[in-house]
Amino acid sequence: MSVEERKRRERAERESAIVAAARALAEADGWNAVTIRRLAEKIEYSQPVLYSHFENRDAIVAAVALEGFGELALALRKAVKRARDHQDALTCLAGAYLAFARKRPAVYEAMFAMPTDLRFAQAESKPELKEAFAALKDVVAQSTADAEAATETFWASLHGLADLERTGRIRQGAREKRVALVVNGMLA
């Protein structure tokens, strides 16, 4: 291994450690607890080292969000593999999406609520964003001629349900009914 390859590997390992520490702090104490100073202490690097990898806290949040979108895409693709038909695939997709949001609240918050420069539906959108959208679109497209709009609407419905559940603003125990209404709306 060349010196340059070793330096690239070590840099990638440090970036991974920073992102993992940010996720852990956010899951334990919320995003307000995630500061450059606390991250530096947690991973035992100086603040300038963190700044050499990420411009600011928002860039770290964006890195957590990108990981989250990659993980979400995998969870969605895995969920639909066990589906028996199109309706079941939409139901599995919805269930996997809501489960992801519930099990990873800080990551989900980074993906959708925290300030980042991540943008969907643009030529320069990150591959992780495109893959997460494609994981939804591949299933939704089977039930409509306008796959883009239908996927955005399905995603918005799931996001709304996830956010309302996460904040305790809708009745507990009615998820299946709500998912069935969203899925039936997609099939209508």
Rank of each mutant, 00 (worst) to 15 (best):
E124S: 11
K137H: 15
D163Q: 15
E152W: 07
R169V: 06
A141L: 02
T144H: 00
P127M: 09
F154N: 02
D163P: 08
K137M: 13
I170W: 02
E128H: 09
A135Y: 06
G168A: 10
S157V: 00
D138Q: 14
S125D: 02
Q122P: 01
K137R: 14
G168W: 09
D146N: 14
L164T: 07
I170Y: 01
T167G: 09
W155L: 06
R171L: 14
V139I: 08
F154L: 03
V139T: 12
L136W: 05
Q122A: 14
A141P: 04
W155A: 11
T144C: 09
F154T: 04
E124Q: 14
K130V: 08
G160K: 09
Q142E: 15
W155T: 06
E152Q: 11
A156Q: 05
E128V: 08
V140W: 05
T144A: 09
Q142Y: 08
R169T: 12
R169L: 09
E128Q: 15
E165A: 05
A147L: 04
T153M: 12
A121V: 00
A132S: 08
D138E: 13
A147E: 10
R166S: 15
T151E: 07
D138S: 05
L129G: 01
L161A: 02
L161V: 13
A150L: 01
T153Q: 09
D138L: 03
R169S: 12
F133E: 00
A162E: 01
V140P: 05
E131S: 13
A134Q: 13
A145V: 09
I170P: 10
E152F: 02
A132L: 03
A141Y: 07
